[in-house]
Amino acid sequence: MKIEGFDHGSRGLGVRNYQLILPSVVCSTHISRRIANAVNAVTFSHQHGCGIIGADVAGIGDFFASLADHPNVSSVLIISLGCETIQGQELAEKLVAKNVSTKYQIIQDSGGVEATVTAGTASARSLQDSYPAKRIQLKDFRVGIDAPSNSAIIRDLIGALRALNIQTDLVSGKSPADSFSHLMEKKVHLILSFPTGDQPASGFPLIPVINIASESALHQAISADFDLPAETTVVNIVKLIFEVANGQETIAETNKSGEILAPRLVRST
């Protein structure tokens, strides 16, 4: 089974062609969303980047860097306020060394909100023009699995995927969002999520997520949010993996659902 992917240069080969508008601090999340909406790019709301100390300074910086370096990303525009702990310019300079399709915009140096939205939108569009989608057959396809337990279907599924020489990563996080962030850092192209009965189906802005229902009352009530029912089979899952990897939108992608949970260890000062 072939997968038609995207060539993202030093970021590697991806199954989606997303431009990421990356707010380096909570104060630039709204402007980032306005720019993302204007140019049909991906962004996320978060509360970090300032007032962090100790291990969180490197932790959050590295987390933002791994988002910007993900293989599904074609180019990155960092939106910074200017006085935050995780300096947008420093983050950009670190990233440009690896991925040349990276720019940044600083609100405090751009003349305010509207001027930043205007300049940021133009900058994002110029990145899109300079780095148009380049199709290429995908190699080293990597699938992440968010599953609470190593149940029978998971073991069979991993066996089937390994047989097709697809690499897999299994994570059981505190919540789907927690698992998705860890799987993103492992640069998985696509995620299979088996949320526990009390968690809804949800997605992750940069990575297509296939949601498989459980038998829980909640999941039966919201079956329309799941890509596959509880009684699905490994064959059906593998079939859908290839359809999604080749461009078919998952339900979470259609709903644009799912927030990005950044890993924090220490309270804010």
Binding site: I222, D225, T254
Partner: peptide, 10 residues
């Protein structure tokens, strides 16, 4: 409640 409404879209 999501369960009563039936789906995120609804």
């Amino acid at each position: 409640s999501l369960a009563d409404v039936g789906s995120m879209h609804k």
